Simulated assay, not measured.
Amino acid sequence: MNVKLTGIAIAALAAALALACWPAADTANPDGAAAVAAGAASASQGRSLAAYFSIDAAPVPGAPPVAVTLVQRLERLAASGKPEDAYAAYQLLDDCIAFGQEGRLPALEFELGREMTAEEKAAQQQLCAGMTQRQRDERLAYLATAARAGVPGAATLFLSEGPFGDRSALRNRPDDPLVQEWKRQAIAQLTAQADEAELSSVSTLMMAYLRDGEVVRKDAPQAYGYLLALRMVYDDILAPGTTNPYQDEYWHWLQNELTPEQQAAAALKAQAIAAKFRQHAGRPAQG
């Protein structure tokens, strides 16, 4: 659990869930269809390079685009007071760090399905050139705000960042009260989100409880409960004939570690999570 998850992992999961759960446009209700289309467009723009340079910039025919600085972008996001915008501020700064290390944005390229152009790289370089150490540190506060508020994906990234951005603290200072409190907070946030069927949290907890780690001890009943929840959800969303990666064929060894009573309790927990997922997705409940 001491390897930082990349934005690509979160993006991949979000893309899969979006395909499965995005409400279909209501052709009998043009306003509803327009709202769905607008939502999809805004979701895409939220992580695009174009969005970084167009906030509050009224287009003027024939005029060059007005560049919005990193400070202006962060001030705008912070001023809204919305946890989703706090998460966007974290992503913005984390993108700048990633770009400084790699000269590209792997998560953005994943979403675009292509490599960044030279123009896009130049724009990102211009945006991030003035990033300060204080801003680098503040990104963790933005992430903490989003995780506490239950923004999807934030709890998983909060865990992957490690205590106060120092993942080595889990190994080097395990008895530090601040580190122990951080671990309790990280697991509590993930558990709350998993109970709401936020699948990145469900998957993260399943993997965490499979073995002794730096954050939690092995807990086979917990791991199996989250595994069953993922199996039930993926049974719902996978296309017919697609192999469910969480079926017993691959995980029978984990089931065999549990007593019948523990298996029954895990099944009840999984059913509750799967029911919550169906509720969020607008799918019919299963009897």
Rank of each mutant, 00 (worst) to 15 (best):
R76P: 00
E119D: 13
L93Y: 01
R104H: 11
D137E: 15
G62F: 03
D26A: 10
G113L: 01
L92S: 12
V151P: 12
A141S: 14
P61K: 02
A89L: 03
F99G: 00
M116Y: 00
Q125E: 14
L143I: 13
D26L: 04
L77R: 01
T132E: 04
V71I: 12
F53P: 00
W22C: 01
G153R: 08
P59H: 05
V151K: 03
C96T: 01
G153M: 09
A155I: 04
A86D: 14
T132K: 10
P152Y: 13
A79H: 05
T27I: 09
W22G: 00
P65A: 10
T145N: 11
A28D: 03
A123H: 13
P59E: 11
A98L: 09
A122W: 14
L108P: 00
S54A: 15
A88C: 02
A51R: 07
Y52I: 08
L127W: 06
F110P: 06
T117R: 14
S44R: 15
A25V: 04
G103M: 14
L127T: 11
Q101A: 11
G62N: 02
F53S: 12
R114S: 10
W22M: 10
N29Y: 02
T117N: 12
D95H: 05
A24W: 01
G46E: 15
G46P: 01
P152F: 11
A147E: 03
S160F: 08
R139E: 07
V68H: 00
G32T: 00
A38H: 08
G62W: 01
A118H: 02
Y87L: 12
E75Y: 06
I55F: 13
L112T: 03
G103V: 10
P83R: 10
V151M: 08
D56K: 15
C128T: 10
V66F: 02
Q91P: 00
N29P: 00
T145W: 01
T132D: 08
L49R: 02
D137A: 15
A89S: 09
I55A: 15
Q45G: 04
A41F: 08
G100V: 07
A33W: 07
F99T: 00
A155C: 10
A28Y: 00
A98K: 02
G150A: 08
L49Y: 01
I97M: 10
A149R: 09
Y87D: 09
A35G: 01
A28T: 02
A122Q: 14
T69H: 02
V66E: 15
D31Y: 13
V66L: 13
E115R: 04
A118L: 07
G62S: 09
F99V: 05
W22V: 06
E138G: 03
L93I: 14
F99H: 01
A50I: 03
P152T: 11
G150F: 05
K82H: 12
L77T: 00
R73S: 06
Y87Q: 08
G32F: 11
R104A: 12
R134A: 15
S48M: 06
A122N: 13
R139C: 07
L77N: 04
E75A: 13
T156K: 06
A86C: 09
E111L: 15
